[in-house]
Simulated scan of single mutants.
Amino acid sequence: MGESRSNFLTRSIEWLRAGYPTGVPRQDYVALLGILRRKLTEDEVRKIARDLAEQSTSDPITPEDIEAMIKDEVLQTATPEDVVRVSAHLAAGGWPLADPPTE
């Protein structure tokens, strides 16, 4: 992974922590990982999933749980309301929701 991608991944984790200062609730994982997949590689999403699993305290989730969500394509079942709610959390943390313009 190049340095700029590594920096983006680090910033992504920081945005998540800012948007979800008390941790990500289980009901937001599906929409959150779906949104992250728009900007991150599969490996980067898996790295973030592992980090999120390590941080989950109120409703523990394991890396295996998150891997199962990814593998089973549960990510495709997020409701529009879930996406709006999670997008608001990410925006609060500074996540760049708009796709960069193509040149």
Score class of each variant (00 low, 15 high):
Met1His: 06
Gly2Thr: 15
Gly2Phe: 07
Glu3Val: 07
Glu3Ala: 01
Arg5Ser: 14
Arg5His: 10
Arg5Asn: 09
Arg5Gly: 03
Asn7Cys: 01
Phe8Thr: 14
Phe8Arg: 14
Leu9Lys: 06
Leu9His: 09
Thr10Ala: 12
Arg11Glu: 15
Ile13His: 08
Ile13Asn: 02
Ile13Arg: 11
Glu14Tyr: 00
Trp15Cys: 05
Ala18Pro: 00
Ala18Val: 05
Gly19Asn: 10
Gly19Thr: 06
Pro21Gln: 01
Thr22Tyr: 04
Thr22Trp: 02
Thr22Ser: 13
Gly23Pro: 02
Gly23Arg: 06
Gly23Cys: 05
Val24Gly: 06
Pro25Ala: 05
Gln27Lys: 08
Gln27Asn: 01
Asp28Asn: 11
Asp28Lys: 07
Val30His: 00
Leu32Trp: 06
Leu32Pro: 02
Leu32Ala: 02
Gly34Leu: 07
Gly34Ala: 13
Leu36Ile: 04
Leu36Trp: 05
Arg37Asn: 09
Arg38Trp: 06
Arg38Ser: 07
Lys39Ala: 14
Glu42Lys: 03
Asp43Ser: 13
Glu44Ile: 10
Glu44Asp: 15
Glu44Met: 11
Val45Arg: 03
Val45Tyr: 06
Val45Ala: 08
Val45Asn: 05
Arg46Phe: 01
Lys47Ala: 13
Ile48Asn: 05
Ala49Gly: 15
Ala49Met: 04
Asp51Thr: 15
Asp51Phe: 11
Asp51Gly: 00
Ala53Thr: 09
Ala53Leu: 11
Ala53Ile: 09
Ala53Val: 12
Glu54Gln: 14
Gln55Asn: 05
Thr57Phe: 14
Thr57Tyr: 14
Ser58Asn: 10
Asp59Gln: 10
Asp59Thr: 09
Asp59Met: 04
Ile61Glu: 02
Glu64Phe: 10
Ile66His: 01
Ile66Asp: 01
Glu67Lys: 13
Glu67Met: 08
Glu67Asp: 15
Ala68Ile: 04
Ala68Tyr: 12
Ala68His: 06
Met69Gln: 08
Ile70Pro: 04
Lys71Ala: 10
Lys71Leu: 11
Lys71Thr: 13
Glu73Trp: 01
Glu73Gln: 07
Glu73Pro: 00
Val74Ile: 13
Val74Ser: 09
Val74Glu: 15
Val74Tyr: 11
Leu75His: 06
Leu75Gly: 15
Leu75Gln: 13
Thr77Ala: 02
Ala78Phe: 04
Pro80Tyr: 05
Glu81Ser: 08
Glu81Ile: 09
Asp82Cys: 02
Val83Ala: 10
Val83Trp: 04
Val84Asp: 14
Ser87Tyr: 03
Ala88Val: 04
Ala88Asp: 12
His89Ile: 02
Leu90Pro: 05
Ala91Asp: 15
Ala92Asp: 12
Gly93Arg: 08
Pro96Ser: 11
Leu97Met: 15
Ala98Arg: 15
Asp99His: 14
